[in-house]
Amino acid sequence: MRWLLALVLAAVPLPASAHDSYAEFGAFLERFRRDSATPSLSAVVVKDGRIVWEGYFGTYDDEGELPTTADTTYSIASVTKPIAATAIVAESLAGDLDLGTPMSADEGWADTCEWLSGSQIPFGGGGADRLGNRIAPMDCARPTTLAEMLDMRANGDAFVYNPIAFARIDRAISGAGGRTLRAIVRDRVAEPSGMRNVALGWHDPEGGDALRFLAPPFDVIAGRPVKQAISDDDFRASAGIKAAPRAIAAFDMAYDAGVLIPPALRKRLLEEVEIGPLGDYRQGWWLEDWNGERLMWHSGWDEKRYSALYLKVPARRLTLIVLANTEALWWGNSLVKAEVSQSPVARHFLERYAK
């Protein structure tokens, strides 16, 4: 069974030397956590199809009494996107969903596009990023399909990171008669990957442990963490998963092993998609070339609450997953340029382990 393969991949024992080689990175993350006044931070490194290092730092309750552990969960925000996109692609490969379905199958799509394209939101009404790169406005005349939305093409032929449009994907699927997104992700990704301790949104009937061990969010004000209300947004293709790093690692290992989608689709992203200096966005992944390496990644940002980093260096079979209960991991990346190398945590990791 596919889920059994995923569990076997995670269970291979690792030598102590493999874990020790990441001790410096663990020390870096602890300094980063303290410097950013982040109460709780968790990280996992996957190498050659297994977890080779994991670190859990700080405390995850508002009283500072419960040490962060492997069970501590976080809102992973937009790191939900590659997980949801992979499930949607798998659903289409099984013949249960047509990726040619127009986003207009969502009855609210036209109104949302009209409002967004006329707004001051850069990925809606257009503008420029901090580097001067043009951000095209949302193109309401474009008959955007599910496949194009997974590639962030709602604004035209070039990608623009448009999380509000991406969040309408589940409505387009259900509008076309498809299954709920939660059912698709549970059946096509979570179960086959052997993901545990994960909630697909607040209303997930199988998400109890993930919600029970959730680290509450904090905003850092004048250098001190201040507890915030937890967002009540439910599960969408854009965001909503609550998980510990090991759950994302289980997805990562299953994805690379070809358990979820055919290896040829992953290979296409790595070898056949030509990207320019701004990078690209395909099937829920940012794509970026750094020092001759093709990177696949996603960041997560729940403003004033949570942040996340999911970084893959596929040629080296190397993955980093970091979750925090502040926005410390967010670096304000562009909507039209893939620039994970600007993240202090990603840059430190890449320069230490991917050169």
Rank of each mutant, 00 (worst) to 15 (best):
R2C: 04
W3C: 12
V12N: 07
P15N: 14
D20T: 09
A27L: 08
F28Q: 07
L29E: 03
E30N: 11
E30T: 12
R31D: 12
R34S: 05
S36C: 04
S36A: 06
P39C: 04
P39E: 05
A43M: 03
F57Q: 15
G58A: 10
P67Q: 14
T73N: 10
Y74W: 06
S75N: 03
S75R: 14
I76S: 01
A77F: 06
V79C: 09
V79Q: 01
K81R: 14
P82F: 02
I83F: 08
L93D: 12
D98Y: 06
G100T: 14
S104E: 14
A105Y: 09
A110M: 09
C113E: 13
I121V: 15
I121C: 07
G126V: 07
G126K: 14
G126P: 08
L131M: 09
G132K: 13
A141P: 00
P143E: 07
P143Q: 08
T145Y: 02
M149H: 04
Y161P: 03
P163Y: 04
D170R: 13
A176W: 13
R182H: 07
E191R: 15
E191A: 15
E191Y: 07
P192I: 02
G194R: 05
L200E: 07
L200S: 05
G201M: 05
H203W: 01
E206R: 11
G208E: 12
D209A: 10
L211G: 08
A215E: 07
P216Q: 03
P216L: 04
R224T: 12
V226A: 11
A229I: 11
S231Q: 05
D233L: 07
D234K: 02
A239V: 11
A239D: 13
A239G: 10
P245H: 10
R246I: 09
F251W: 14
V259I: 15
I261N: 12
I261K: 06
A264S: 13
K267H: 13
K267C: 06
E274L: 10
E274Q: 09
G279L: 10
G284L: 00
G284H: 01
R294D: 11
M296N: 12
W297V: 01
H298A: 05
K304T: 12
K304H: 11
S307V: 06
R316W: 01
V322W: 00
N325A: 07
T326L: 01
E327A: 06
W331K: 00
G332T: 06
G332D: 03
V336E: 05
Q342D: 09
P344G: 06
V345C: 01
R352L: 12
